[in-house]
């Protein structure tokens, strides 16, 4: 038998029938779904959240006119940004005006705008030095144009 004939006989080689059956059953019974661990789910969520956050930041930077230059300007670093300072200084000015109001007006000013309280007639101008008006109770009346204070009314009624 020469080599050529020997090679031609190779096409008649067959696997053992029992081995074939076992192998097929093993392959078919194997699970094809990949196992997903809790850590994988967590990692994927983190990745998704990071992607959304980065996309949001990018949109904010584009839409909001973000300026890295402004953020890192010396005034910002030194906390001497005039806009922030102005807001705080204005709050102090308002407080000074509140302290200069006549007694009664400030303490009795409604705490909330929506509160159902009588209209309190404001003083024409802050007058901190006027001792007589400083102890006058505020006028309580719905129509501020013709308001009469409680003490004015009592004064009139005592005559």
């Amino acid at each position: 038998m020469n080599l050529n004939e020997l090679l031609k006989q190779f096409k008649y080689i067959e696997a053992d029938r029992e081995y074939t059956r076992k192998s097929r059953s093993l392959i078919l019974s194997a699970k094809h779904t990949a196992r997903v661990s809790l850590a994988d789910i967590f990692l994927k969520n983190v990745q998704l959240a990071a992607s959304v956050a980065l996309a949001g930041l990018l949109i904010f930077m584009i839409v909001g006119g973000f300026s890295a230059w402004r953020m890192f300007s010396p005034l910002q670093i030194a906390n001497l940004d005039p806009v922030g300072l102005k807001a705080e200084a204005q709050a102090i000015d308002i407080q000074i005006q509140l302290a200069n109001l006549n007694y009664g007006e400030a303490a009795l000013a409604p705490a909330k705008s929506g509160e159902s309280t009588p209209a309190i007639t404001p003083a024409p101008a802050p007058a901190p030095k006027q001792e007589t008006s400083a102890v006058t109770a505020p006028a309580l009346q719905d129509n501020a144009t013709s308001a009469v204070s409680i003490d004015e009314a009592l004064d009139k009624l005592s005559q």
Partner: peptide
């Protein structure tokens, strides 16, 4: 006037 004094004092109480 008494109604007004009551209201005035209640506002003071609430604000404080």
């Amino acid at each position: 006037t008494l109604d007004c004094t009551i209201k005035e004092a209640k506002i003071l109480e609430s604000n404080i």
